[in-house]
């Protein structure tokens, strides 16, 4: 009995924040799902007048209008206008006026680091996004602490002399790129006793608040003891700010892709600071086709490339390549 209630509590801990932004009747329906399913929930999607979709780590399901999950849209619970307006209020803590910045960027970070993506009618002013009106869709992404996912790759990222290599993670969306990055940051910052590596100061530029999941500027994820986070800061500017102000030994950032990001990285390289970053893509060749990244890769400064996929589940490390193109690790499948 005790065990059961404790396991329920664990589920509640990671899902409370997510379920807490849903109206009461939806909360009850989701809490009635079996614990096995609750543990797999990755996202909850609400779209006006369409079925409420629950993304599990293996597939997407609809919430059945009375109980459990279903695959047939006809039996699914259909999201209505009242649900949408309640979610807006709950997500915004009843204060949409306080979220202008967040509406401009299209997502809100909840306490505990969960992310809510928002869609609706976008209002622009001078071709800049001003705000969003008539909000009609949400994607609530569950964030679970995943400590230890970087254990297997860390030995490839630290040189025998105890330096961190310039590292780039290449991964398609939803393959655990940010989760892996976060755990690498945490372990580099805390130190890795097994590898005789004492921690280094890590500066994180978290433009999309995904790495540290800051809420009111305070990281909601464990990003390590020696980590400084610039939340919601544009990457290029942020990297320079950290370089000047926080004297980091490693600068980490997510999803580089713009010209100014690459320029900022060049500056960092010249300053002797190590770079830890990610890009979207499913292979080295694909990343190489993006002109901005080609430039970075041609400079031959990145010393370690880690390629991720979902082939053996989220966060499968496909390949680790060193700066000269030599393969250090290759996933052979099951």
């Amino acid at each position: 009995m005790n065990l059961v209630s404790r396991s329920l509590e664990n589920i509640n801990n990671s899902l409370t924040g997510v379920v807490g932004v849903l109206p009461l009747h939806l909360r009850k329906m989701i809490h009635r799902l079996p614990p096995v399913i609750l543990n797999q929930v990755e996202e909850v999607r609400l779209r006006y007048h369409r079925p409420l979709t629950i993304g599990l780590n293996s597939k997407d399901c609809f919430l059945h209008h009375t109980h459990g999950l279903t695959d047939t849209p006809e039996q699914a619970y259909i999201v209505n206008a009242d649900d949408i307006s309640r979610v807006i209020q709950l997500v915004s803590n009843s204060s949409i006026y306080a979220l202008e910045e967040e509406l401009r960027s299209g997502y809100i970070t909840l306490p505990a680091g969960h992310r809510v993506g928002i869609t609706g009618k976008v209002l622009t002013e001078n071709s800049q996004v001003k705000t969003m009106k008539y909000i009609s869709g949400f994607n609530i992404r569950v964030s679970r602490p995943m400590t230890g996912v970087a254990d297997a790759v860390l030995k490839h990222l630290i040189s025998p002399q105890g330096f961190v290599y310039h590292t780039m993670l290449i991964s398609p969306p939803r393959c655990g790129k940010t989760t892996l990055l976060r755990d690498i940051i945490r372990q580099l910052s805390n130190g890795v006793p097994g590898l005789n590596f004492t921690g280094v100061t890590v500066g994180v530029v978290d433009e999309r608040s995904e790495i540290a999941g800051c809420y009111h500027g305070i990281p909601q994820h464990d990003v390590g003891l020696r980590t400084d986070v610039l939340d919601a800061c544009p990457k290029a500017v942020g990297m320079m700010m950290l370089l000047r102000s926080m004297s980091p030994q490693v600068i980490a950032t997510d999803e580089i892709g713009r010209v100014e990001d690459v320029l900022a990285i060049e500056d960092i390289l010249n300053a002797g600071v190590k770079v830890l970053t990610t890009v979207h893509g499913s292979s080295l060749e694909e990343s190489n086709r993006r002109p901005v990244l080609t430039k970075l890769l041609q400079m031959k400064v990145i010393e370690r490339l880690i390629i991720l996929s979902r082939s053996n589940g989220v966060g499968t490390v496909e390949q680790i390549i060193d700066g000269s193109g030599k393969c250090l690790f290759k996933n052979r499948g099951d």
Binding site: S85, Q89, S92, S94, I96, Y97, E100, T131
Partner: peptide, 10 residues
């Protein structure tokens, strides 16, 4: 109307 629109509207 409280809380459900932008600042000017509030």
């Amino acid at each position: 109307n409280l809380g459900i629109s932008d600042q000017q509207d509030q």
